[in-house]
Deep mutational scan, measured.
Amino acid sequence: MQIFVKTLTGKTITLEVEPSDTIENVKAKIQDKEGIPPDQQRLIFAGKQLEDGRTLSDYNIQKESTSHLVLR
C-alpha cells in the first residue's frame, strides 16, 4: 500500500509499505529515499509519535494515510 510522509519543508514522500511493516522499516525506507538517518527521524501520526518496534497496523495507518516527519 502507499502512504505519504510530509516533511517540515512541505515536501511529500510517497512510500510503498505493508501494514505489517514496523516503524523502523518505514524509517529505513525514508533513509533510502531521502538520506536521513533513522535516528534523526521522528514520525508523527494523528498527533502521536510512532515508536520503532510497533507496526503501521498498530497505529491504524491505512493506505494513503499521511504522517509527518520531524527531524531531531
Rank of each mutant, 00 (worst) to 15 (best):
residue 12 T to N: 05
residue 19 P to T: 07
residue 7 T to H: 05
residue 70 V to D: 07
residue 71 L to M: 09
residue 71 L to I: 13
residue 66 T to S: 10
residue 11 K to M: 09
residue 6 K to H: 15
residue 20 S to R: 08
residue 23 I to V: 09
residue 29 K to R: 07
residue 41 Q to F: 14
residue 3 I to Q: 01
residue 43 L to Q: 00
residue 26 V to F: 03
residue 58 D to M: 04
residue 69 L to E: 02
residue 24 E to R: 14
residue 54 R to H: 11
residue 8 L to F: 13
residue 21 D to Q: 04
residue 12 T to H: 07
residue 11 K to H: 12
residue 50 L to Y: 01
residue 46 A to G: 10
residue 71 L to H: 06
residue 37 P to H: 11
residue 22 T to F: 08
residue 56 L to P: 01
residue 31 Q to N: 09
residue 14 T to Q: 09
residue 29 K to V: 04
residue 15 L to C: 02
residue 18 E to L: 15
residue 8 L to Q: 14
residue 46 A to N: 15
residue 71 L to A: 07
residue 22 T to Y: 07
residue 43 L to G: 00
residue 65 S to M: 10
residue 69 L to R: 02
residue 16 E to T: 13
residue 53 G to W: 13
residue 28 A to V: 11
residue 63 K to E: 12
residue 26 V to Q: 00
residue 12 T to V: 14
residue 46 A to I: 06
residue 49 Q to A: 11
residue 27 K to L: 05
residue 67 S to P: 15
residue 9 T to F: 13
residue 66 T to D: 10
residue 35 G to F: 04
residue 17 V to F: 03
residue 9 T to D: 13
residue 26 V to R: 00
residue 46 A to Y: 09
residue 3 I to R: 00
residue 30 I to R: 00
residue 14 T to N: 06
residue 24 E to S: 13
residue 8 L to M: 13
residue 46 A to T: 05
residue 51 E to V: 09
residue 40 Q to I: 10
residue 29 K to F: 05
residue 35 G to M: 05
residue 5 V to Y: 03
residue 60 N to S: 08
residue 31 Q to R: 13
residue 54 R to A: 07
residue 37 P to M: 06
residue 6 K to Q: 10
residue 53 G to H: 14
residue 16 E to P: 04
residue 38 P to M: 15
residue 11 K to Q: 08
residue 41 Q to H: 04
residue 46 A to H: 14
residue 31 Q to P: 01
residue 31 Q to F: 15
residue 54 R to T: 06
residue 9 T to L: 11
residue 48 K to I: 14
residue 10 G to E: 04
residue 39 D to A: 12
residue 43 L to R: 00
residue 35 G to S: 05
residue 64 E to F: 13
residue 7 T to L: 14
residue 43 L to Y: 02
residue 10 G to V: 02
residue 63 K to N: 15
residue 56 L to C: 01
residue 54 R to D: 05
residue 45 F to G: 02
residue 9 T to A: 12
residue 13 I to G: 01
residue 20 S to Q: 10
residue 56 L to Y: 00
residue 68 H to Y: 14
residue 34 E to S: 13
residue 8 L to V: 13
residue 18 E to T: 14
residue 3 I to M: 05
residue 53 G to S: 11
residue 30 I to G: 00
residue 22 T to A: 04
residue 17 V to P: 01
residue 5 V to E: 01
residue 17 V to H: 02
residue 42 R to H: 12
residue 62 Q to M: 12
residue 15 L to N: 00
residue 37 P to E: 06
residue 44 I to M: 11
residue 64 E to R: 08
residue 58 D to A: 04
residue 44 I to G: 03
residue 17 V to K: 00
residue 48 K to V: 14
residue 15 L to H: 00
residue 29 K to N: 03
residue 11 K to W: 08
residue 69 L to H: 02
residue 25 N to T: 14
residue 67 S to V: 15
residue 48 K to W: 06
residue 36 I to D: 02
residue 61 I to Y: 03
residue 12 T to D: 04
residue 48 K to G: 06
residue 71 L to G: 06
residue 57 S to D: 08
residue 30 I to P: 00
